[in-house]
Design a protein around this nucleic acid. Structure first.
Lengths: 147, 147
DNA sequence: ATTCGTGGTTGCTTATTGAAACCAGAATAT
DNA sequence: ATATTCTGGTTTCAATAAGCAACCACGAAT
């Protein structure tokens, strides 16, 4: 995690979240949670990261309200990491990132995991930035208003 | 940047992009580029990060096709970092992250930077994950199909 | 000829990561 | 009862990356 010293810490809604999810592992942990993973060992096996790192990341995510600890649903004497509302609200972020990766990091026809609508089995729609009236906006069509 | 050793490097479209934008500074650099910044010194002043770090990040972003170098538009003998199509395609990612930050990292009424439609001056619409037919999807409504 | 602004690079110190070993409680096996 | 395994971590320590400050090169201005 970088050490933001300037005005960055304060008023920009992009900078603050990056203190929580701005490293290479955290969003993968959350993605795995969307895929149904809940237990320490599941995350560790899925991601192959060192246990101390996972431990630190999970603790940080709990401290920041992305996960909460709950007694294991299956009766085992352990605890589970379950996404909070705040954590589930990362779904658009991870999906946008996934679509970017899908478009720009795979060659035509290269096999990849696909996210589909569970109901229809169809791929989900590409996410776009839209104005209040529904017009699709590019980076040039939007501007930041400082507080 | 973490060191992904398992299957993570390969088939998941979430993991690959994180090798490029998965640190705390990179997305802020890109956000600044959306705000019109192009020059080394502008990024450094805006973000307050060490010059060697900025240098490394920009070189990595150029190497990964997010920025490209172009001769300065204003006649000065330097070069500018300008977003490629791939870089501009990060707009939905950064916007989704911004909206998450806006919702979950600020208290009611706390002053913050706002992203508005340049044409109408109105805030942009909240981004949502949608199925092909337009239905809004939550994390539970989508599933990953492995290749 | 000298200073200044821009865009870096080079050392050096400190913080973070990562691998492996270790540890503790609960369940399971002997 | 005792030992073994499974789960979920913590501790230790080496390697790597971040951060800071000093330095440097080039062109423009003085």
């Amino acid at each position: 995690m970088p050490k933001r010293t300037t005005h960055e810490e304060s008023s920009c809604p992009v900078a603050r979240p990056l203190d929580v999810v701005g490293d290479g592992w955290t969003l993968l942990i959350v993605r795995d949670a969307f895929d149904g993973l809940r237990r320490f060992g599941q995350f560790q096996k899925s991601l192959g990261l060192a246990k101390n790192i996972l431990s630190a990341r999970l603790a940080n995510l709990v401290a920041n309200g992305v996960f909460e600890l709950a007694p294991a649903a299956d009766g085992s004497p352990y605890q589970e990491y379950v996404l909070t509302e705040k954590g589930r609200a990362l779904f658009p972020v991870i999906t946008a990132l996934r679509q970017w990766g899908d478009r720009w990091f795979f060659t035509e026809g290269e096999p990849r995991a696909r996210l589909v609508d569970r109901e229809s089995g169809e791929p989900i729609a590409p996410m776009r930035v839209r104005a209040a009236d529904g017009r699709v906006l590019g980076p040039e069509d939007a501007t930041v208003l400082l507080p």
